[in-house]
C-alpha cells in the first residue's frame, strides 16, 4: 500500500469493474473508498462553507458564522480539564442534570408503559374499557400540559419529570398494547401445547413477539422526551441546556444560543445512535427474518 497512489485521481477509470469481484488493485480500492466518502460528504461540506460565507458576508449579530460558534462553544463548555472529559464547570452543571432527567423520565415511562401495555393487551375487557381514554390522552399535545404541571409542582425537576413522563408514556403504552394483542395465535398454542407456564409465556413468547412494536414506541418517546426536556427547561428550570439557551438569549450572547442548539442536535443524534445500536442487538432476529421472507 503506497501512499503516493492513494490520492491518484486515476481510480474512477476502473469503476467499470463489478464490485466485490476478485481483488482489485490497492490504488483502485483506495480510490473507490475516497470516491465513496466524497459522494456522501460533498453536500455537508458545501453547506458548511456556504453557511460560513453567507454569515461572514451578512455580518449580522443574530447570524454568527459557524467558526465563531465553534470557538464560543469551546470557550464556554469544552475547555475543561481532562479529568472531567474536557467539560467546563458550566457544562457539567447544566448538561448532566438535564440529560439525567431525560433518561430517568424515559426509563420510568418505559417501565410503566410496558407493564400496563402488556396487561391491557392481554385482557380484552381492560383493552375495551380503557382504549378510548388512552387514545384521548395521546391526542393531547404534551407541551400543553406544561402549565398544569407548573401549577402542581412549581418550577423544578419534579415538574420536568412529570411533563416528560406524562407526555411520552402513551406511544409506549399503546404500542405495547398493540404488540401484546397481536401475538400470533399459533405462537401461543404451541406454547400451551408444550406446557409453558404463564410467566414463561410472558417473558419468552409475548414480550419478544411484541418487541418490534415496543421498540417503535420507545423510539418515538425518546425523541419526544428530548423535546419535552428542552421546552420544560426553557419555561421552568434553574439549570439544563434549555435554561442555558434562555439565559444566553437574554444576555445577547447569540453565539451561545446557536451553540446550545448544536449541542442539543448532537445530543439528539447520540441518543438516536445508541438507541439504534441497542435495537439492532435486541431485534436482530426480526431484521434477518424479514429480509429472508421478502
Amino acid at each position: 500500500m503506497s501512499t503516493s497512489t492513494a490520492t491518484r485521481p486515476a481510480a474512477p477509470a476502473e469503476d467499470g469493474d463489478p464490485a466485490g469481484g476478485g481483488s482489485p488493485g490497492g490504488a483502485a480500492r483506495v480510490g473507490r473508498a475516497v470516491l465513496a466518502v466524497l459522494s456522501r460528504s460533498w453536500l455537508v461540506v458545501l453547506v458548511l462553507v456556504a453557511w460560513e460565507a453567507v454569515t461572514v458576508a451578512v455580518d449580522d449579530h443574530f447570524f454568527p458564522p459557524p467558526s465563531q460558534i465553534a470557538v464560543r462553544m469551546y470557550e464556554l463548555w469544552f475547555s475543561g480539564p481532562a479529568s472531567s472529559a474536557f467539560l467546563t464547570q458550566e457544562a457539567l452543571d447544566h448538561f448532566v442534570p438535564g440529560i439525567g432527567r431525560l433518561l430517568l423520565g424515559w426509563a420510568l415511562a418505559a417501565v410503566v408503559g410496558v407493564v400496563l401495555g402488556v396487561a391491557l393487551g392481554r385482557s380484552e375487557l381492560l383493552h375495551d374499557l380503557l382504549d378510548p381514554l388512552l387514545q384521548f390522552f395521546r391526542a393531547i399535545p404534551p407541551p400543553a400540559l406544561l402549565p398544569v404541571f407548573l401549577i402542581l409542582f412549581s418550577i423544578g425537576p419534579r415538574m420536568q419529570l412529570a411533563t416528560i413522563v406524562f407526555g411520552i408514556i402513551w406511544p409506549i403504552l399503546l404500542n405495547t398494547m398493540d404488540g401484546a394483542r397481536s401475538v400470533d395465535r399459533l405462537h401461543l398454542d404451541t406454547a400451551r401445547v408444550f406446557g409453558l407456564s404463564a410467566p414463561r409465556r410472558l417473558v419468552r413468547i409475548i414480550l419478544p413477539s411484541a418487541a418490534p412494536k415496543i421498540f417503535a414506541g420507545l423510539r418515538i418517546s425518546l425523541a419526544m422526551a428530548l423535546i419535552l426536556m428542552v421546552i420544560s427547561e426553557l419555561v421552568g428550570a434553574t439549570n439544563g441546556i434549555g435554561y442555558l439557551m434562555q439565559t444566553a438569549q437574554f444576555g445577547f450572547d447569540y453565539q451561545a444560543v446557536w451553540g446550545a442548539v448544536i449541542v442539543l442536535g448532537v445530543l439528539g443524534n447520540v441518543l438516536n445512535l445508541l438507541f439504534t445500536l441497542v435495537e439492532r442487538q435486541v431485534l436482530g432476529w426480526q431484521h434477518g427474518a424479514r429480509q429472508l421472507n421478502s
Binding site: I227, V230, Q246, W258, G265
Partner: peptide, 20 residues
Amino acid sequence: ATQPLVEFLRPIPSVALIPL
C-alpha cells in the same frame, strides 16, 4: 449526498429551534 445531512438534522429536537 443528502443522507448524512438528513441523518444529522432529523434528530435535532425541533423545539430547540424555537428560541432561535
